[in-house]
């Protein structure tokens, strides 16, 4: 299987005044095409920093990060933006839909930055909205949609460029239990279709849906054995 992600000895630290805080220490992580991984950790454990580095929003201080075989550890801002556009689909806890754009226009947004012509953008965005079950809500503004629907729009937006990696940061954090379950099922479905997915969460129940769970604590990553029933589902 294709290797999507390969991180070797990733370190990242911040300075607060004179004091150095080691947020990530020698993180090693590998993922293959079709993997469904959860990163589980309490707040302050370094999981946000890890997500930023995986999502090419930030670069590590040291170590090597290969994304679909390309080294992205030392790229500049513009190159990182292009990689994010092409390879990463983000799903955020609070959706981050632009309030003045319709669902369709929100989904089109990444394709605008890919430089696709308008007609092609619209076609692909409409397909993706239908895929997440919102084919009839394309013209709606975000505030005319429920929380679950908004997150579906955000997922459609993350998928529309056909990225190598879907990166979700607490995707159910702002949703009620039942809606959260539906969103998790959508992720499982997408994974069955071959999508590579990382869910970052502090919630064991959410993490349990993934095939692999890694724990992060004080900047160190430890991988548990496969969770039997999650593996059984696969």
């Amino acid at each position: 299987m294709n290797e999507i992600l390969n991180m070797q000895d990733i370190c990242k630290s911040y300075f607060i005044g004179e004091e150095e805080i080691k947020v990530l220490q020698n993180v090693v992580l590998t993922m293959h095409q079709g993997d469904f991984l959860s990163v589980l950790g309490p707040s302050g454990s370094g999981k946000s920093t890890l997500m930023n580095i995986i999502g090419c929003l930030d670069i590590p201080d040291s170590g090597r990060y290969l994304l679909t075989g390309h080294d992205v550890s030392n790229l500049d801002e513009t190159e990182l933006a292009r990689i994010r556009n092409k390879e990463i689909g983000f799903v955020f806890q609070s959706f981050y839909l632009l309030p003045r754009l319709s669902a369709l226009q929100n989904v089109e947004l990444p394709l605008v930055y890919s430089g696709l012509p308008p007609s092609e953008r619209r076609k692909r965005a409409a397909q993706m909205l239908s895929r997440v079950g919102l084919g009839d809500k394309m013209r709606n503004l975000p505030n005319q949609l429920s929380g679950g629907q908004q997150q579906r729009v955000a997922i459609a937006r993350a998928l529309v460029t056909n990225p190598s990696l879907l990166l979700a940061d607490e995707p159910t954090g702002a949703l009620d239990q039942a809606t959260g379950q539906q969103i998790i099922h959508l992720f499982e479905e997408l994974n069955r279709d071959g999508k590579t997915i990382i869910i970052i969460t502090h919630d064991c129940n959410i993490a349990a849906h993934a095939c692999r769970v890694v724990h992060i604590l004080d900047g160190r990553l430890t991988e548990k054995e496969l969770i039997p029933d999650a593996a059984g589902k696969h």
Partner: peptide, 16 residues
């Protein structure tokens, strides 16, 4: 600010 952050995450370059 949030909108700018989001656009950047979605692939807008600093120039854009």
């Amino acid at each position: 600010t949030t909108e700018i952050g989001l656009r950047k995450a979605l692939g807008a370059t600093p120039f854009t």
